[in-house]
Each structure stands twice: as structure tokens, then as C-alpha cells.
């Protein structure tokens, strides 16, 4: 029998060690990649071993909750003034260093009022005194410019509030009745608006509107690559959010939407409702609707109030009928429930 020589034994050992090393160092190559599936626009199911890039149908956690924002109204700290009128005090803090995941996997530097885009929805009744303590914790000058009726010195244009903690108190009587935008008015203005410094300001009539399920929809867009064209559109910031998180509403219940168009770059935006029509009150200033329609067109900062009820249960889309916008995120679903 042939004896195993020392060099052969050495070579065998080295080979064995090398083989073990190879197995240990490249375990990925040995394991079978996991398969996942996703659904296309047309309903087809596609399987992949890779990563799914799907802002449309995949629910995802974002730092801002559009569902919470939808029905969140801030009335401020309420107290009575000596003359009997109501004082509503708000504190709004501007920042410009936050990075938000505005769409799954896409990160963008947003400039915020109280940490979100849009900023908080401020609500008062006509005749109330609104007092807003504004603190600028950003690295740039900012202001709040309210649309509505107020003295020139409260207009938030000629009184830049300094960076790093500057303060200003805006005070005026809430007027007129309706829904209005507020936004920063520092130059370059477009830059300050498109980064997210805007929100809705609602003035209720002294004689309240009919009880309803009320919502705010700020129609906005984001130009994430700074080419003066929006890469994303949405109702309330997050593209496709209400499409994969349908808004549940009651059958026959009165729905009131305060809608406000803050999209820049594109001259118009619009709002189309499926399976229904709505009474539309431009700017919300009149009690008589201007139209009974399923389609309104809104220019920059144009806004109004929509009222409707659904007669049949089920899912109904609402979206921009400028389809480019809806295919880039501005679309959602109302899920009408009959309580079953």
C-alpha cells in the first residue's frame, strides 16, 4: 500500500481549509433568495427575488400621518377677552432642517411649521381674536403670511422674523368666513413655499355650519430634484397615501372637505370625485354653492369647501383629473361604509 507523503497531506489540509473558508465567506451564494410578490396597476401579480419599489400599494410608515392630519383642527388656547370676545392663542415654530421620507424611500429636506408639512390647521370663529406667537428656529428668515383680512403690520411680508429664535406675534380678528392658506412670505418666495411652509386657516361662521364629517385636504407637490417641476403630488403630502389607506366615511353622512391648492410650478390643479357630485363653495365665503359638480379646477392658493353624501356603499376614488398628477401620487379612495 502506498503511504501518504507529508506534502500530499499538507496539500489536502490546505485544500480542506480553503474549501471551508469559501463556504463560510460566501454563505449568500449558497442560500436561495426569497421570493416576494407585488401587484401592478392592472392587477397582475409579479414575483421577484429582489426588492419591491412600490409607493402605490405598499403601506409604509412615514413620519407624518396623513390620516391624523386629515381631521385634526387646532382651536388654540381659548380664553375670554374683557369685551366678551374669544381669544385664541397659538404657538407656531418654524424649522428648516428636517428631512422627511415624503414617499417610501425618498428623503427630502422639508421646511416646517410645528414639524409637519402642511403645518397645523388653525381654526377660529368669525370675530374671534387670533393671536399667533411665531418662533423661527430655522437657519433662514421666515414669516407667516395669512390670507384674509388684517392690518398691514400683521401681513407677514415686511417683518422678517430672524433665524435662530426670532419671534413675532401676529394678532388679528378672524375674517372673513371661509378657508384660507397661510404661508411663509420671505424671498425667494417660491423656495420657501415649495419646501413646505404652508397650512390651512379656517374661519367658521358665527352661525355654525351643519354637523358633518369634516376634513382638510391640502393639495401639494414636491420638486425633489430642484428642476422647477414637481416629482410628487399628493393630497396632504404623502403620494398615494389615501389610495392604500382609504378614508372611511359613513353611508348618507354629510362630508365636508376644506380643500386648498398649494401646488407650485404647475398653473392648475383639480379635484375629481367618483360616483358622486358635490356642492362647491369657492373660498367658503358664501353660503350658496357656486356649482354642483364632480370636478373643480384650482389655481395657486385657490381653495373652497366641498359638501357631499354617498348613497351607495363601497370604494370611490378621488383624484386630480390632470392625470399626470394622479399618477404621481395625487389620488385616494373614500371607503363608504354602511356599518355592516
Amino acid at each position: 500500500m502506498k503511504t501518504v507523503t507529508r506534502p500530499v497531506a499538507m496539500a489536502a489540509c490546505v485544500a480542506a481549509v480553503a474549501a471551508m473558508g469559501a463556504v463560510l465567506l460566501v454563505p449568500q451564494a449558497a442560500t436561495e433568495p426569497e421570493e416576494r410578490a407585488f401587484v401592478t396597476h392592472s392587477g397582475a401579480v409579479v414575483r421577484t427575488t429582489g426588492e419591491i419599489l412600490d409607493p402605490l400599494y405598499t403601506a409604509s410608515d412615514v413620519e407624518f400621518d396623513p390620516m391624523e392630519y386629515l381631521r385634526e383642527f387646532h382651536g388654540g388656547r381659548v380664553s375670554a377677552l374683557p369685551d366678551g370676545r374669544t381669544l385664541r392663542e397659538f404657538t407656531i415654530i418654524a424649522e428648516d432642517d428636517r428631512v422627511m421620507e415624503i414617499s417610501p424611500g425618498v428623503f427630502y429636506n422639508v421646511w416646517t411649521y410645528n414639524g409637519t408639512v402642511p403645518g397645523p390647521t388653525i381654526r377660529a370663529t368669525e370675530g374671534d381674536i387670533v393671536r399667533v406667537r411665531f418662533i423661527n428656529n430655522g437657519d433662514k428668515d421666515h414669516t407667516i403670511h395669512f390670507h384674509g383680512i388684517h392690518p398691514a403690520g400683521m401681513d407677514g411680508v415686511f417683518e422678517p422674523v430672524g433665524r435662530g429664535g426670532g419671534e413675532f406675534t401676529y394678532e388679528f380678528e378672524a375674517a372673513p368666513v371661509g378657508v384660507h392658506p397661510y404661508h411663509c412670505h420671505i424671498m425667494p418666495l417660491e423656495e420657501h413655499i415649495v419646501h413646505g411652509l404652508y397650512g390651512a386657516f379656517i374661519v367658521d361662521p358665527a352661525e355654525p355650519r351643519e354637523e358633518a364629517d369634516e376634513m382638510v385636504m391640502v393639495l401639494n407637490g414636491f420638486d425633489t430634484d430642484f428642476d422647477s417641476e414637481n416629482n410628487f403630488y399628493a393630497a396632504n403630502t404623502v403620494p398615494f397615501y389615501y389610495q392604500h389607506h382609504p378614508i372611511e366615511i359613513g353611508l348618507g353622512e354629510l362630508i365636508r372637505i376644506y380643500v386648498l391648492n398649494m401646488v407650485e410650478f404647475d398653473p392648475i390643479n383639480n379635484f375629481h370625485l367618483h360616483g358622486n357630485l358635490y356642492d362647491y363653495y369657492p373660498t367658503g365665503t358664501q353660503r350658496v354653492p357656486s356649482a354642483y359638480t364632480d370636478m373643480i379646477t384650482l389655481s395657486q392658493t385657490e381653495r373652497g369647501i366641498m359638501e357631499f353624501r354617498y348613497d351607495y356603499p363601497g370604494p370611490y376614488m378621488f383624484h386630480a383629473h390632470k392625470v399626470e398628477f394622479s399618477e404621481k401620487g395625487w389620488s385616494g379612495i373614500f371607503l363608504v361604509s354602511d356599518g355592516q
Binding site: 416576494r36 429582489g50 412600490d54 402605490l56 398615494f240 404621481k328
Partner: peptide, 21 residues
């Protein structure tokens, strides 16, 4: 880099990145 999404003619589409994004 991380690939976040794909579009066709500037309209966002669901997609998958293989082997990863």
C-alpha cells in the same frame, strides 16, 4: 445609492429591483 422608485414617461409605476435597491 438606493433606488427608491421607477417611472415610465414620468408616471410612477410599481416595480422591483433585483437583486436589490
Amino acid at each position: 445609492v438606493s433606488i427608491a422608485q421607477a417611472d415610465v414617461n414620468d408616471r410612477i409605476q410599481p416595480s422591483a429591483a433585483e437583486p436589490g435597491s
